[in-house]
């Protein structure tokens, strides 16, 4: 694989103040939700790189959303901005008062994208959902999705409801990242076989610094879990605890981490361990102390094979 291909260009767009930079800071720069108030407005385009799983690097283009900038992206910088994009993430503010105008801008962006990168994946995040009353969320979200789909030029897109204050943010981003991982099939096949070996209920692979779910496999033992949002919740739990640890060991959140985390209860056992350089593996197995300890050791031993088989070096 040549390096240019590995770097995936991700466009992050949306109206000014819709929360693009806030999201990016929380996911990729270890901000906590309440700290994003300090962020200023993004001027023009801010580039950043996020290394993911060793052989996937995201090249994030955080595009400031003020009208003047938007204008320049769509005209003067059109080719520069929209060519070679792999992913467009468009953020809508649910509280926005000028929905029609937002949709108009969106539709222009889509046209530009269609012109220069017709194969790009499109994700729309309906953001700041926490500001909507819980009982209306579903309905308002559905309505907004329909409006957006109508303006998407027939391109396929995925929509997510998100908020930086709960795990929906992780759900949205995990969905986005999941789409971009190379050789995902190989990884999943490996995990499937491994889960069978361990009689595990479930295996989840998390990215190390962002704690986003890379992928997961569920076996017959784990398929009756009543919590469909469990991966996002686990991401959230560990990331929160990572912040506590960082605060109390006087390190930065980026360098804090876990070597091994184990829980044994009457109903289930689970552990989280460093897997490759950039991933954590989270394994849930049925109770049984000896089997659990074996599972931990086997996982640590499976690291090398995993790297070799899947080509995820580091």
């Amino acid at each position: 694989m040549d390096t240019r291909k590995r770097k995936k260009k991700v466009l992050l767009m949306g109206k000014s103040g819709s929360g693009k930079s806030s999201m990016r800071s929380i996911i990729f720069s270890n901000y906590v939700a309440k700290d994003v108030r300090r962020l200023g407005a993004t001027i023009d385009v801010e580039h950043s790189h996020a290394k993911f799983m060793g052989n996937l690097t995201l090249n994030l283009w955080d595009c400031g959303g003020q009208d003047a900038f938007m204008d320049s992206y769509l005209n003067a910088q059109r080719e520069n901005v929209f060519s070679d994009a792999e992913v467009l993430i468009y953020v809508f503010d649910i509280e926005s008062r000028s929905v029609d105008q937002d949709l108009e801008t969106y539709s222009q962006v889509i046209k530009a994208l269609k012109e220069y990168s017709p194969t790009a994946h499109i994700f729309c995040l309906i953001h700041k959902m926490d500001l909507v009353q819980t009982e209306h969320r579903e309905r308002i979200y559905e309505e907004r999705c329909k409006l957006i789909a109508a303006r998407s030029e027939g391109l396929s897109l995925e929509t997510f409801a998100s908020s930086i204050w709960d795990q929906t943010l992780y759900k949205a981003w995990a969905g986005i990242v999941h789409k971009m991982i190379p050789n995902l099939v190989v990884i999943e096949r490996f995990l499937q076989a491994f889960a069978k070996q361990l009689s595990a209920e479930e295996i989840v692979l998390f990215e190390r610094s962002t704690f986003l779910t890379v992928t997961n496999v569920v076996t017959e033992y784990g398929e009756d879990n009543p919590h469909p949002d469990r991966h996002e919740r686990i991401s959230n739990i560990f990331k929160t605890y990572k912040h506590t640890v960082a605060r109390n060991t006087r390190t930065t959140a980026a360098s804090a981490g876990f070597l091994l985390f184990k829980v044994q209860t009457q109903r289930f056992n689970c552990f989280l361990a460093r897997f490759t350089e950039n991933t954590y593996i989270f394994v849930v197995v049925p109770p049984g102390e000896a089997a659990f300890n074996c599972a931990v050791l086997n996982t640590l031993m499976a690291r090398d094979v995993f790297a070799k088989k899947t080509g995820v070096e580091g």
Binding site: S199, F261, G288
Partner: peptide, 14 residues
């Protein structure tokens, strides 16, 4: 998968 203690137990190494 085998026997285990009644009480929940957990550890983390940071």
């Amino acid at each position: 998968l085998g026997e285990q203690m009644q009480e929940a137990e957990s550890s983390v190494t940071i």
